[in-house]
């Protein structure tokens, strides 16, 4: 079992509230996308789960145990953070060896195999790695450590399209071999959309959506047609936003189900996760 329960967490930085009474559960053995705009509070949430920073209120449980300052709970979690916390003068190989000390299930041969696939020389010092290779180094550590919970904060930062594709494939392969609870915080939503089963969307320090990806996608749809007809059709529905080009209007709707009767001249299409995210996290939010 590897469930993370975040209960009423609040975190302030000076006068700024980064997280406001946030409660969310990351389910066992599910890949969850933690989505939010810059400064929404994603990294703060991940840092709180791993005890790198302290909350001003609330608690975080990992398998029903308080996570804060708890070695047993923390030994189940590996966090790929924005910051590289390994000593810069350490070589990649040495870093992997030390990871194995702390996470005894680390698969060293798999780590070497990944290094080979990502063309990373394990003899290199961490300080000599570029942004992309720094991400690759952290990906290799995260995927090979076999911790039951992986928190990945911007894992594809600086990676080219080929390596991003390789990362998603390896993530799925790693998960298939040994299912684990994975939380991916990313801005590249379309790329991650095929991988994530659950979605948590965070906006201005508050969780606005926490649901299965499939459920969310069935709720969001685009209504396109003549402006007056679209306005008429969407009256009373939860509108996320609208774009108008000439006389044609596209309205983005979030409802419990797609409408059965669609009048002529109106087209209803499924929204993509990224599009839904953009409209949900735009400053306007949901309008009725």
């Amino acid at each position: 079992m590897s469930v993370i329960e975040v209960k009423n967490i609040t975190k302030n930085y000076g006068g700024v509230t980064a997280l406001n009474n946030v409660s969310v559960t990351f389910e066992e053995n599910k890949i969850c996308g933690l989505l939010g705009r810059n400064g929404a509070g994603k990294t703060t949430l991940l840092n709180l789960i791993t005890g790198r920073i302290f909350a001003d209120g609330g608690e975080i449980l990992i398998d029903n145990e308080r996570a804060a300052e708890n070695d047993i709970a923390m030994s189940k979690v590996y966090c790929f953070g924005e910051q590289t916390l390994y000593p810069e003068s350490m070589s990649v190989k040495k870093a992997l060896e030390w990871t194995r000390e702390f996470y005894p299930d680390t698969d060293f041969s798999y780590a070497e195999e990944l290094a080979d696939k990502f063309s990373l020389s394990v003899k290199k010092k961490i300080k000599s790695l570029s942004t992309g290779y720094n991400s690759i180094f952290k990906i290799i550590v995260a995927l090979s450590c076999n911790a039951p919970v992986l928190l990945l904060d911007e894992p594809v930062l600086g990676l080219d399209a080929n390596f991003r594709d390789l990362f998603y494939r390896e993530l799925i392969a790693c998960y298939s071999r040994r299912p684990k609870t994975i939380v991916i915080s990313t801005h590249l939503i379309e790329e991650a959309a095929d991988v994530i089963e659950n979605v948590v969307i965070i906006k201005n320090g508050e969780i606005i959506i926490s649901d299965m990806t499939q459920n969310i996608l069935t709720k969001g749809y685009t209504v396109t047609g003549a402006a007056a007809a679209v306005d008429d059709f969407t009256k009373g529905q939860k509108l996320l936003g609208a774009d108008t080009l000439g006389g044609i209007k596209s309205a983005y709707v979030l409802e419990s189900g797609r409408p059965a009767d669609v009048p002529e001249g109106i087209e209803v299409s499924r929204m993509k996760l990224q599009s839904l995210f953009i409209h949900l996290t735009n400053n306007g939010g949901i309008k009725k």
């Binding site: 791993t50 005890g51 790198r52 300052e69 708890n70 070695d71 923390m74 030994s75 189940k76 979690v77 590996y78 966090c79 953070g81 910051q83 916390l85 390994y86 000593p87 030390w98 990871t99 702390f102 996470y103 911790a147």
Partner: peptide, 16 residues
């Protein structure tokens, strides 16, 4: 700094 960061990267509590 260096040891503290290494411990935090590997899920070691401050007490430990």
């Amino acid at each position: 700094k260096s040891a503290f960061h290494m411990m935090m990267a590997n899920g070691v509590s401050r007490k430990t």
